[in-house]
């Protein structure tokens, strides 16, 4: 009885996963509320200035910049 369920589950996983990997429904669309996903700075992340609201991007003033941080030799290892 569990065999058909396993087949259905496998087909569902492949359909859902393939569809999501192509259409990427979780990616931020311009005009939507909020901001795109932000990764850590070291992984190519950014700091958003403002956010989407009411179909438009509302830019806010940027926060203070702390200047040089660096990572030091421990980060190289």
């Amino acid at each position: 009885m569990h065999r058909p369920l396993l087949l259905v589950l496998s087909i569902s996983v492949i359909l859902l996963g393939t569809n999501d990997s192509i259409h990427r429904p979780t990616i931020y669309r311009l005009g939507n509320d909020g901001t795109p996903y932000s990764q850590p700075s070291s992984a190519g992340g950014v700091i958003y200035r403002g956010s989407g609201s009411g179909g438009q991007w509302r830019t806010s003033s940027r926060g203070g910049w702390s200047g040089f941080q660096g990572r030091g030799p421990s980060g190289v290892k």
């Binding site: 005009g31 950014v46 700091i47 910049w65 030091g72």
Partner: peptide, 19 residues
Amino acid sequence: QVVLAFDKEGWRERGTWQE
């Protein structure tokens, strides 16, 4: 019209390490 705005706070550091 600005539809997306963001800042990148980057840096580059060169030095010596000892271990």
